[in-house]
Design a protein around this nucleic acid. Structure first.
Lengths: 195, 195
DNA sequence: CTTATACTTGACCCCCCATTCAATTTTACT
DNA sequence: AGTAAAATTGAATGGGGGGTCAAGTATAAG
């Protein structure tokens, strides 16, 4: 017995997510968020809360993308450990639009912004990054069991190396590095861990 | 025949640089810059120009630090190629205060902010990063001449790997990774290139 | 001591920031 | 048709954003 919502929540979240992703938290004014989502001022506050809350929802939305990428790569049972890790980098970095690639990573960008000093935000961003690492760790354990992990390299350290490469690549993406160069960097990093 | 300046230009630039470094361009309001530098509003605009110009000067100031680090490591004639590269990472990442380390890198942070879309800013930030890479390339060429570079690895690619590791480490720094972990990541990356 | 020159100061400007809210519209149930 | 519930709307609010400027102040040259 109430008026139904007119906007598509998913579309709104995606548009806002892209805005935050491209320009960061600070530079994304509420007005810009209204413009890119097409919703009205009051609607935003009524349905999504204040800017902070909205941002967190957008990070959640971003995390959904990550989850999908993990699902079809790292958690794909048809792939062996290293193939799945390769597949993840493909999903996350290489096989995406130039537009998105040049925007880097919302999580990395947020770490590098002042919003990183907010306890809640930190928790959300770190949580999302931890999910990626966890999925990588699972596959590295598998690789280790099958003696496919380089000797003397621990699973935890290998995960750190891969995450570090991922972060570096994300920064380099924002610096305009092309796909070929990023691919080489990823390939090299993985090769240093593979047996 | 004019009144002499009262502020110490270098101190002002250092304080403002730290503010921009810690919180980024967008979150650093002019008021915050006045507070941390101790100078007056008019003085800032008279002596340093508008916020954009001031920011560029602060990046220049940051670049001076980088230059010093390069001078005592990568350009140190008493060190061989790989020792000098190790020394650079020490100077830039490991042997600095926890406070500074946790702030990451002003250049990387700027790449990840919306200011990255400003042509002038891009030029300044990229220029500074290019200086680091150039100094690394010089040493890698030396290593290659002395057959200390791993076979099949080009100087340019090795430089890309090191820069990517540096970027990754800078993001991880802002994520709170400790010195020991960063050291391991750097060591590993260098070892993959060294012969 | 006077004067030209530059630095310093903070009040002031307009604009856009995030946020609120009362009025309006749209629906579903009775 | 009437009404309760929720969504929508955009004007309004207070505050802080970046930037300006006229007045005051300190210096060195003449």
């Amino acid at each position: 017995m109430a008026r139904p919502v007119e906007f598509d929540e998913n579309k709104v979240l995606n548009s806002a997510m892209e805005q935050f992703w491209r320009e960061g938290y600070e530079a994304s004014s509420v007005q810009k968020l209204l413009d890119c989502t097409g919703i009205n001022r009051g609607t935003l506050y009524n349905s999504f809360g204040d800017k902070d809350t909205f941002f967190k929802s957008c990070v959640d939305q971003y995390h959904k993308i990550i989850d999908k990428q993990i699902e079809s790569s790292l958690k794909n049972p048809e792939l062996n450990a290293w193939d799945s890790i390769n597949a993840y980098f493909d999903e996350a970095v290489l096989n995406i639009s130039n537009k998105h690639r040049s925007m880097g990573c919302l999580l990395v960008n947020s770490l590098c912004e002042s919003i990183n000093y907010d306890k809640d935000m930190k928790k959300v961003v770190r949580g999302s990054l931890a999910t990626i690492r966890k999925a990588i760790v699972a596959r590295l354990k598998e690789a280790q069991k099958k003696s496919k992990l380089k000797k003397g390299v621990s699973v935890e350290f290998a995960a750190d190396v891969l995450m570090n490469t991922l972060h570096g690549v994300r920064v380099n993406s924002r610096d305009g590095k092309n796909n070929r160069q990023l691919k080489e960097l990823i390939k090299h990093s993985i090769n240093t861990l593979k047996k």
